[in-house]
Design a protein around this nucleic acid. Structure first.
Lengths: 232, 232
DNA sequence: TAGATATGTAAGTGATTGCTTACATATGAA
DNA sequence: TTCATATGTAAGCAATCACTTACATATCTA
């Protein structure tokens, strides 16, 4: 965090969103270019408020107060409230992030060296870590996607590409070598994603109090995917 | 940049909620008792607006206009806007609905007569039908749960019971008879629910244009759950 | 240095918010 | 009939909304 000015210290530093904010701010900065201290604090406050109370229920003056900034300053940096929302979420689709995910996938594939179980566990663990890293942004995106066509388009533009890469890199070789059944890639992807998202939601939203052993849980999920319910 | 104050017109998404509204109104009426014509139209309009644009982004006067009613009439029947929201969603937890689901489960179990695949397909198909039937309410509930403790409590109060029944009725006998592995009930439930929800979301939200054969898709999901990815 | 531009703010703007009030009419019990 | 209650509405309330304006100061360039 940058040096603090003694002037408007009051509202800024209270309960945060977890350590996630630093990684997020780095990603935002990469998209927005260099940011003044106040702009950075606006972004931070907006992410917090949108994630916490939703976009529609968050007033711009609430953001301003939380950022320790005059309300007008927000509109100096962002055309509208909606523009603020969109530019916050945009880093999730940044060229510096998405190809990185695809690249990670290839690294993981090589490293697993043909062991499908290891590969799937690694992939799921990494995606879980990604979700945690950008949790507030992901939360905002999922929450607001239904109401803002711009967000939906951004997802539609970027997501399928990643999925195709994933299916080609991960699934095909194993089907070709007969290690797994010739299941439809779409079904496979949908299932893995559903299981991971389901686990994530339960871990973070439904039963956050409970202690979770990610590695063990992912292992169980992968085993279930590989072997199914029936005994062998 | 021209002035662009977003008036509520922003996006009044048109179109319908499907035929679901009749079943929903019946459920609401059961909770609310006899309703005047205007009250019924308010409920209907509110469900439509909340589901389409979200609770926070829906103005009470928008609901009134859609219902063809004076705004004051809303507050004659509902104390506050939030009271309206809660009483709309409440029927989902009605004693006339939840036990019905549990009872359905037993019927399905008996009828499947030990054939696990048939049983799971039937259960998933019925839950999918339920979701379709109450789609707008379910949508509102899921969307607003994070922001309204009252809704969360209602879910926490009713959901676990249903899950326990499900696990006991469905899973235990099959584990006992060795037809499926001794998988944790929590993992099993979470997985089945995740897969079904994942399919539902993709079918209704992500790719609603595509043609979906529910029966076939459910069959594939169940096969995956039972046999896994590996060839036998 | 000058002056252009970027950044920041206090104090508004009209529109819209959820909700109330005052009053009318309809309904049902005595 | 009488009166009490239920239902409905138009008008209006203060608060809040997203956003602008007018003006100050900081920073950069020439």
């Amino acid at each position: 965090m940058p040096a603090k000015k003694p002037t408007a210290e009051d509202q800024t530093n209270e309960s945060s969103l977890g350590g996630a904010i630093d990684a997020i701010m780095a990603a935002v900065e990469q998209e927005e270019g260099a940011m003044t201290d106040k702009k950075r604090r606006i972004v931070e406050a907006a992410i917090h408020c949108f994630a916490e109370n939703g976009y529609a229920a968050t007033a711009t003056n609430t953001i301003a107060r939380r950022a320790g900034v005059a309300e007008g300053t927000i509109f100096r940096h962002f055309e509208t409230k909606k523009d603020l929302l969109i530019r916050l979420v945009r880093p999730l689709f940044s060229p510096s992030l998405l190809p990185l995910v695809a690249k990670e996938l290839r690294t993981e594939t090589e490293r697993a060296d043909g062991d499908l179980r290891t590969l799937m566990c690694t992939i799921l663990a990494n995606r879980l870590a990604f979700a945690d890293r950008f949790a507030p942004l992901v939360r905002i995106l999922i929450q607001e996607m239904r109401f803002h066509a711009e967000l939906r388009e951004a997802v539609a533009e970027n997501f399928p590409v990643g999925l195709q890469i994933a299916a080609d890199t991960v699934l095909k070789p194993y089907i070709a070598s007969g290690q797994i059944r010739a299941v439809e890639p779409a079904l496979f992807l949908r299932s893995v994603i559903s299981l991971l998202v389901g686990y994530y939601v339960i871990r973070t939203e439904v039963l956050p109090a409970q202690e979770w052993d990610d590695e063990a849980e992912i292992g169980r999920i992968v085993d279930l995917m590989l072997d199914g319910l029936r005994p062998r």
